[in-house]
């Protein structure tokens, strides 16, 4: 088994990185890791911090899982992955506490809850446990950046409409009446639904164009 694994491990490509950004975007396409996506995106700063923390854990856990993949027995692999992830999340938790106490208070228990983000366990199981270290790092980085991008999409939209600002900078004149609903929990559901609608619309339009092109071509 070890011999077979060697070959794809060396075949590193930029595709490992690119696919997480758009084609297999963890939030908009795979709909994974919804809890933090909805819970902490009431402002762009929170969204960015959460995205970076998740990326950090994702890259490090992918690295370790990939490095240890030949030593982990199959039967207990999920438990092992979760322990690895929990270790890195504890590190991130103390790291954020050291950098900014305000941020730690704003994100609250959701930093610890990165452990149960299905995205991280999913990547460990589906990618890192089958591929070499280099590719796994790229995969983790790509997925993490895609995740951060999606969080920013939501956090940005919710902050602009809900508080009339972006990254704390006021965008509208004082007369602007903020839409309180966007900051409330229901706003999270609505914003994500609207983004998914937009992506569905683009996908359907592309499909329609492709089938039209096929009818004309032959």
């Amino acid at each position: 088994m070890q011999g077979h694994d060697r070959k794809p491990a060396t075949a590193m490509s930029t595709d490992d990185f690119i696919k997480g950004l758009w084609r297999e975007n963890p939030v908009f396409v795979q709909v994974l890791g919804m809890c933090p996506v909805l819970a902490v995106t009431n402002s762009a700063v929170n969204a960015l911090a959460m995205g970076l923390a998740t990326t950090f854990v994702l890259v490090l856990s992918n690295t370790l899982v990939s490095a240890l993949r030949h030593f982990i027995p199959r039967q207990v692999r999920i438990a092992t992955f979760i322990l690895i992830i929990a270790t890195f999340v504890t590190v991130v938790d103390y790291l954020i506490q050291a950098i900014s106490l305000d941020l730690h208070r704003a994100l609250g228990a959701f930093i610890s809850l990165i452990v149960v983000n299905c995205l991280i366990l999913g990547r460990a199981e589906a990618f890192a446990s089958k591929n070499g270290v280099g590719r796994s790092v790229l995969d983790g980085l790509g997925m993490g950046v895609g995740f951060t991008f999606a969080l920013l999409c939501l956090g940005g939209a919710r902050e602009i409409f809900g508080s009339g600002s972006l990254f704390g900078v006021s965008l509208f004149p004082a007369a602007y009446q903020p839409w309180i609903v966007m900051i409330l929990p229901s706003g999270g559901f609505f914003t994500l639904a609207l983004w998914l609608l937009l992506f569905n619309h683009l996908k359907l339009r592309r499909q329609a164009r492709d089938s039209l092109a096929q009818e004309v071509m032959p």
């Binding site: 559901f189 609505f190 994500l192 639904a193 998914l196 609608l197 569905n200 359907l204």
Partner: peptide, 11 residues
């Protein structure tokens, strides 16, 4: 068609 699936559930 556009609304079907996750988007509808989220709404």
């Amino acid at each position: 068609d556009m609304v079907q699936g996750t988007a509808l559930t989220l709404m």
